[in-house]
Amino acid sequence: MPSDPLDPAVHALLTESFRRLVGRPLEPEGEGGPDWLYRQAPFAVLAHDTGADPRFVYANRAAQGCFGYDWDAFLGMPSRLSAEAPERAERQRLLDAVARDGFVSGYAGIRVDAAGRRFPIAEGIVWQLIGEDGAVRGQAATFPVPADRR
């Protein structure tokens, strides 16, 4: 995936995969586009690649605020580092379920920010990123920004 958060191809992969798998749009009607999703969306969106140790390839500003990393720090960081070690096994079970089922909704868990502070996420949706050619490009997640992270 390209490293530009405003890349239209990245936006299309995120939003079209979400619509196909979850059955509804990621962006509200009348809103949208790469700039809106990256800069203005009031919910977090993150994505990682398909590597053996998946690395983040996208994190919108809302996600950056939650985790305390800027774009450059997020890009290429192993996604497992978004959870503390005890939470990683649960996170891996979730990712395995997403790979099997296409998406999982209602996800909740504990994540850790850049300063090592724990914070809860709830009402999350995690989905496969599937290109028009049918190839899996990674997985993405969205969740409402916790009140103490706004």
Rank of each mutant, 00 (worst) to 15 (best):
F74Q: 09
G134M: 06
A59C: 05
M1P: 01
R20Q: 07
I130H: 10
G106E: 00
A9T: 07
G138T: 02
A59V: 02
Q92N: 13
R100A: 15
L26F: 08
L129M: 03
E27T: 08
A147Q: 10
S105C: 13
E123S: 15
M77H: 10
A59L: 07
M77K: 12
L6E: 12
P144Y: 11
L46S: 12
E27N: 08
H48S: 04
S17Q: 03
G33K: 00
I121M: 12
R111Y: 11
G68S: 15
R55M: 01
G131A: 15
H48E: 11
G32L: 01
A44K: 05
R19V: 01
P78E: 00
L26K: 08
F103Q: 13
E31N: 06
D49F: 00
L95F: 13
P78K: 05
R61L: 15
V98H: 02
D96G: 03
L129I: 04
L129R: 10
R150N: 15
A44V: 12
P144C: 02
A73K: 04
P28L: 10
P120A: 12
G51Q: 04
A97N: 11
H11N: 03
M1E: 07
Y69Q: 04
G131D: 15
P86R: 10
P42Q: 09
E31F: 11
A12D: 06
P86A: 11
G131K: 09
Q64E: 14
D113L: 08
V136D: 07
P120D: 06
P34E: 13
G138D: 05
A12N: 07
P34F: 10
L21V: 01
F43D: 03
V126L: 13
A9D: 04
T15W: 03
Q64F: 03
V104T: 12
R137V: 02
I130Q: 13
V126N: 15
D133V: 02
A47V: 07
A83P: 02
F18H: 14
D96W: 07
W127S: 09
P120F: 01
A83E: 14
F119V: 01
D101E: 15
A108H: 13
A12K: 06
